[in-house]
Amino acid sequence: MVDGFADTSRFRLVEAPPLARFVLRAPDTALKAAGKAYGLALPEALNHGASHGERGKPGARVALHLGPDEWWLIVPEAEGPDVAAALESALGSHPHSLVNVSHRQVGYVLEGEGAAGLLNAGCPLDLSEAAFPPGMATRSLFHRVGLMIWRMAPGLFRLEIDRSLAPYFVAALAEAAKDHS
């Protein structure tokens, strides 16, 4: 339940708890070491996400491959400093960039059988399961703002939006939902 958005039987919007987020930029040669230190192999295929554990619960790990040398790593808030330290020490010999962006974004889960259709009110991508299968993660647009869309299951999307644009996103999604009642 998110303020300003009315859930229906066909879709629900949930705001993520505070999380630690990092942007890792590194060449392919650093992937193995990074995955080992992170505790989750970083997906090699571009526009794919991987995870284990339950969001916000201890040990949960998310890795999203969003640019050729760009991964987003999302972990429980309390584990951020340790994860960063482990990565930095494992990647010491590889040129890389690890930047804390925990507060840059707001995370949401949009779920339900109507979730994909609702996103298509403002997102121009083909969100059919054939074109955008579970496991796919990519940046795109929702109306006027950029967002990250990661499909975890057919009716389960995790979304990340820049902090200051999140209120617009929620309002725009709520407006779009009026066409999906």
Partner: peptide, 8 residues
């Protein structure tokens, strides 16, 4: 530039 995608 794929600015709202992979950024490249």
């Amino acid at each position: 530039r794929h600015v709202h995608g992979c950024g490249r």
